[in-house]
Amino acid sequence: MTVWLVVLARSARFLGPLAALLLLLLLVYLYEDNPVRDSYGSTALYLVPIAAWMTLALLDATDPQVRELAAVRRGRLRTDTERVAAALAVVAALAVLAVAAPAAAGAFERAPTAGDLAVGLLAHLACGAIGVGLAACAARPVVARPAVGAAAIAGALLVLVVLGAPPMSLLDALHDDGPTAGPLIAAGALGAALVAAALALMGRRE
């Protein structure tokens, strides 16, 4: 997994999604007295497209021929699992940043409790996994043309928003300060299903 992270770091492709996340955090927390869970709901939702962007950056940072070499030597499933796991690791780091930075900066109306931080982190991780799964389903080798893949991701996000499916249901629960267990589980399950589907699709492609 490490090598895919090294490739991403040296390619500098991570800078775009990282800058986008920092800008969004700045915009969300520009005004003070932010409600804790409501704000975490917003940034968790924003993490979906940012996670997708980061995943595309990671998966496209390596020449497809290197993936082929790795697949022949180490197996397709193992190679693809490592690449997707690397994307999940990067997105998990972004999730931690999105939860910890505003808490550390005192950008909330009150100090977040341990429960707030836990719910916030889980919401960001679940939304991040949805972004990773969507992007992995729409990246090479599943979708050969990057423009088509990006359009597919945008379309899928639109469908999720219109249907009120996770991550929208999670956002609503956090905004309304309602019960979050169900929406968190649904978002996590969707993320896991998308990642599993992506690995299955990648295994079928050359």
């Binding site: 090598v3 090294v6 490739v7 390596t62 020449d63 021929q65 290197v66 790795a70 180490r74």
Partner: peptide, 19 residues
């Protein structure tokens, strides 16, 4: 050939490929 060399050294690439 490779269409694009990865941003790795030979040692890193070989290690990544399980050598």
């Amino acid at each position: 050939r490779l269409d694009a060399a990865p941003p790795l050294s030979a040692r890193e690439l070989l290690r990544a490929l399980g050598v």
